[in-house]
């Protein structure tokens, strides 16, 4: 219990230090770009493939239910709204946590275990500014882009199954979707959600790595904890954000 509060306090101080020492990740943007490559670009395949399949499943399941009420023309609305509002940001965040978050934790945990972090401190290089902050900003930048791609390709998947495979009218599919999806209310709120998830996931992953005991076992535990904690954080934050964003509708 006391240990948990202690860790929380350290995590807050760590997060604050990351924000305060972010200057270098923008001044030497090459560092951040390298991390965007590792956490963003290399996550593309898993994000795009899962997005496509999620959209296709939504198309199939949505059609099954909607055709009972003779309103299969609303399929586009169903697919687009569920992806843009919820599934895009949340599933992309969960995939990002398990693909990139775990890698960040393991990398930093191993850096600590092999005393690279201490070596940097010896050379008067601030490890927070040099190692942690670029990874943080890379995650924060990558997450909304990945979530937007997830939603876009998901809508395409829904279109493939609904229009191309099943034969829902193409005009109705797009026009009903466009009538129902609002740019500011739905699309932008989805982007805001994924930004928040990006902050949460990378902050958790970085902290778990930095706080990991410098042993093989410690790093493996920290990696597991990253995935579990960030998944829970994403789902809980999603509830809170949804309650704020879509309340009066």
């Amino acid at each position: 219990m006391v240990n948990g509060v202690w860790r929380l306090g350290f995590a807050s101080r760590f997060f604050l230090a990351t924000l305060l020492h972010s200057g270098m990740s923008f001044r030497r943007f090459q560092l951040t770009i390298k991390e965007i490559y590792f956490s963003g670009v290399l996550s593309l395949i898993i994000i795009l493939v899962s997005g496509l399949f999620v959209g296709m499943v939504l198309g199939l399941q949505g059609y099954e239910t909607l055709q009972k009420y003779g309103s299969e023309s609303a399929l586009g609305t169903l697919v687009a709204l569920s992806l843009v509002r919820e599934l895009g940001p949340v599933l992309a965040a969960l995939l990002f946590a398990s693909r990139a978050g775990s890698a960040i934790t393991a990398e930093i945990g191993l850096m600590k275990a092999t005393e690279q972090i201490s070596a940097m401190e010896m050379m008067a290089v601030d490890p927070i500014a040099r190692v942690v902050a670029p990874r943080f900003w890379a995650g924060v930048i990558s997450m909304p882009l990945l979530a937007a791609m997830f939603s876009a390709i998901g809508v395409f998947g829904g279109y493939l199954v609904g229009v191309v495979l099943i034969g829902v009218d193409e005009g109705q599919f797009w026009s009903q979707m466009q009538a129902a999806v609002d740019f500011r209310q739905d699309v932008m709120n989805g982007v805001i959600k994924s930004c928040v998830f990006g902050v949460a996931i990378t902050a958790i992953a970085l902290f778990e790595g930095y706080d990991a005991p410098p042993t093989a076992e410690g790093v493996s535990h920290a990696t597991t904890r990253t995935v579990v904690t960030s998944a829970l954080a994403v789902l809980a934050l999603d509830f809170i954000l949804t309650a704020f964003m879509f309340r009066g509708l």
Partner: peptide, 29 residues
């Protein structure tokens, strides 16, 4: 070459937002 990949990634992400705005959302209509 890394910069190229990151650049492509950012362009693709922004394009996805644009698609969501124009094709999926009602910003254009």
């Amino acid at each position: 070459t890394l910069d190229l990949w990151v650049g492509l990634f950012v362009v693709a992400g922004l394009a996805a937002v644009l698609v969501l705005a124009m094709k999926v959302g009602n910003l254009s209509t």
